[in-house]
Design a binder for these strands. Structure first.
Lengths: 220, 220
DNA sequence: GGGGGCTTGTGAAATCATTCACAAGCTACA
DNA sequence: TGTAGCTTGTGAATGATTTCACAAGCCCCC
């Protein structure tokens, strides 16, 4: 029972990361579906896109409420709104990128972020040669300004794209200054204080999982 | 019992992706450990690095054999070699990058790949303006050469970094030409023929998982 | 208004992954 | 040679996630 008349909170015990990851996927498909002008979608259709099963889709959603109509499926518009709210995308997030090397610069200019409500409010580098570079309207700023800017702009998320050996020190600085979530692209294990969320993306690991699968048959 | 005297095959039923991902991490820590001159390492030390437990480390390894000495731990050198062999890193892999935009160019120049046995043998783009660009010794080639080059150079892995709407057509082309594994950076769901492995990396999803955690408390 | 054909939402069952707990085995040293 | 102190390797237990299966509910049409 869910009438969408008021902002809801989703009283959550513990949600598996796999569920959250799939919700993010569903959201992407829903947006495509909406662009095509479809009004409703069934769990089976959503599952077909995402390579999962209709039961999985329904179970994922059931942790947060019931959003469909039996016999009919889901309103594309309403389900989109519901998932956006579940994921916390109803208000925009501010992101800083620490490290203006190849990856940092690529991310700073990546359209996929801004289109989903993540606004890059600062890009930082230690190298004087990179400070002042223009990346898509943003100017690379010196790392020494990090603390001041975090206090001023209050970004919630920091993306770390510096070399492995510099990563921990910078994470310490940005979390001390108030950053609450870190997305780490540096190939180094990082630790963060309690209350700060950390995720890591490691390109080499992704290729190594492919290598394992190629080597050991289709057994992942 | 495992004497490393002959190339082994690891007679594997089904290994969880989480296990393979951790093995890749362990490998990174082992290399650091080796660089520091340590000769042996215990499952507990390895676990401390990776934010897991000693039992998990031992269980992960136990799927492939026994590599340690009771009472002593693991020889850093031998375990490194064993994991490299498990992951299939004992011989080099050839990679092509399809799409020489920001992300593609960044990946083409990323040191982390070559240092782990992944050699980028070609970068491709459709845009005449990008064809001919030099990326770290590689010259961007026209997409029309894809099939010819795949037949000639026999790369096993393709990294897809083109816009979402172009991705499926290119995956169809490279898999038809013989590519056996695809790493997809395009924010689009792709399908591949049987026998081809597909993995996806989606930056927006990673940020959305962070947003969920920030919104819903520390419940992932 | 009633029946047929769908599709959701959800407990229960099955599968999969992690953690526990301990015997077995190694080294060091008396 | 025997004992103490570690650490591995691994079945068994626990915990988490996915799949199953079906009652409940909705729409359409007769």
């Amino acid at each position: 029972m869910n009438d969408f008349t008021s902002p809801q909170t989703f009283p959550v015990k513990h949600i598996a990361e796999s569920t959250v990851r799939r919700l993010s996927l569903y959201l992407r498909f829903l947006e495509e579906f909406e662009a095509k002008g479809h009004e409703t979608i069934s769990s089976g259709e959503l599952a077909a896109f995402g390579g999962t099963t209709s039961a999985q889709v329904r179970k994922d959603l059931s942790f947060f409420g019931s959003f469909g109509k039996r016999g009919l499926g889901y309103s594309v518009k309403d389900l989109t709104a519901a998932i956006r709210e579940i994921l916390g995308l109803e208000h925009p997030w501010s992101v800083i990128i620490v490290g203006a090397g190849k990856i940092g610069a690529a991310l700073a200019q990546y359209r996929g972020f801004s289109s989903r409500g993540f606004t890059v409010v600062g890009v930082y580098d230690k190298e004087p040669a990179r400070v002042g570079l223009k990346l898509d309207g943003l100017v690379v700023r010196p790392e020494s300004e990090l603390e001041r800017d975090i206090h001023r702009l209050k970004p919630q998320i920091a993306v770390i794209t510096v070399p492995a050996e510099a990563a921990q020190a910078l994470v310490d600085r940005v979390t001390a200054a108030g950053i609450k979530a870190v997305l780490n692209f540096a190939p180094a294990p990082l630790t963060v204080p309690d209350g700060v969320t950390l995720r890591a993306v490691n390109m080499a690991t992704e290729l190594e999982i492919l290598a394992f699968t190629l080597t050991n048959g289709t057994t992942v």
